[in-house]
């Protein structure tokens, strides 16, 4: 049954995020073309237009990634706890299967959103470099040079700590892909415990979880601050990322069990 649930859920939930992603990618190409007009001494008007396009692209990045996240949260709320919940919860499936069928697409889209944003930035930046180098404003050799310089600097810090740093970044990103959706679903489920104002309850629960999360992160982070030798920041950052990553992993797992308990044992549709 989980397979059938996932099939229906995925089809239903993916339309809007697909459209939003497509809009962002198209926008990244359009904004990328704005680099075409850049040369020394261009008119103020076109400079203004170019900057506006860049800003538009920047806002679109934020709007689309937030839009997809909010859409997924609203969809979870709508199908689980509004009138539509009357159908959702009378399907012949267990509460756990239902929850997984909602969470899996949320996690996949939380991953895809990162990919889409990354792609959009890559297109925008790539086109920028391409056009700028054609105008002779930057040369490819110059870019190559500065990248090599950066790598050189990083190598100075020691390749072992570099690998650890990259791993810690990957770790926190992967945990984040799961943590984001779980925070939203958990907050919405907890909000249902409030008698009347359940949406407010959910928002309150979200900020409550965030606060607890931040306090715990601080507690983990502080001791490491004292261990900082002031010379090489990389090990400190690596440690912080691993610390925060692990805290959010624990929060994610705890929230999952709380949510599963609420969905299977405390369902209370209005």
């Amino acid at each position: 049954m989980l397979g059938k649930l996932l099939k229906h859920e995925w089809k239903e939930v993916s339309v809007i995020p697909c459209i939003l992603s497509a809009i962002l990618l198209v926008l990244s190409v359009i904004s990328g073309f704005s680099f075409l007009g850049i040369r020394e001494g261009i008119a103020d008007v076109s400079r203004f237009m170019t900057v506006m396009l860049w800003m538009l692209f920047y806002f679109a990045l934020i709007a689309v990634s937030m839009g997809i996240t909010i859409y997924m949260a609203v969809h979870f709320y709508r199908t689980m706890y509004t009138d539509e919940g009357y159908l959702t919860h009378t399907l012949p499936v267990s509460g756990r299967e239902l929850l997984w069928s909602k969470l899996i697409p949320m996690v996949i889209w939380s991953f895809l959103t990162i990919i889409v944003v990354f792609l959009a930035v890559l297109i925008f930046g790539g086109m920028g470099v391409m056009f700028a180098s054609r105008e002779g404003m930057v040369s490819m050799a110059e870019i190559r040079g500065s990248i090599q310089e950066l790598i050189g600097q990083l190598q100075l810090m020691g390749s072992g700590s570099m690998t650890a740093f990259i791993l810690s970044m990957l770790y926190i990103m992967i945990v984040g892909i799961f943590n984001g959706p779980m925070m939203l679903a958990g907050a919405i489920a907890i909000g249902q415990l409030v008698g009347k104002h359940r949406i407010l309850g959910s928002i309150g629960a979200y900020f409550g979880i965030m606060t607890i999360f931040q306090i715990v992160s601080q507690v983990v982070f502080l001791p490491m601050m004292f261990g900082f030798d002031g010379d090489n920041p990389l090990p400190l950052l690596t440690g912080t990322y691993f610390g925060i990553g692990t805290v959010s992993l624990v929060v994610t797992v705890l929230l999952y069990f709380v949510t599963e308990y609420l969905v299977t044992k405390k369902l209370n549709l209005e």
Partner: peptide
């Protein structure tokens, strides 16, 4: 539970159609 839901057909007072 899931197996009773498979044989109970329920018309709620509200419309649950998407």
């Amino acid at each position: 539970g899931p197996s009773t839901k498979a044989k109970v057909s329920y018309l709620p007072e509200r419309t649950y159609l998407k």
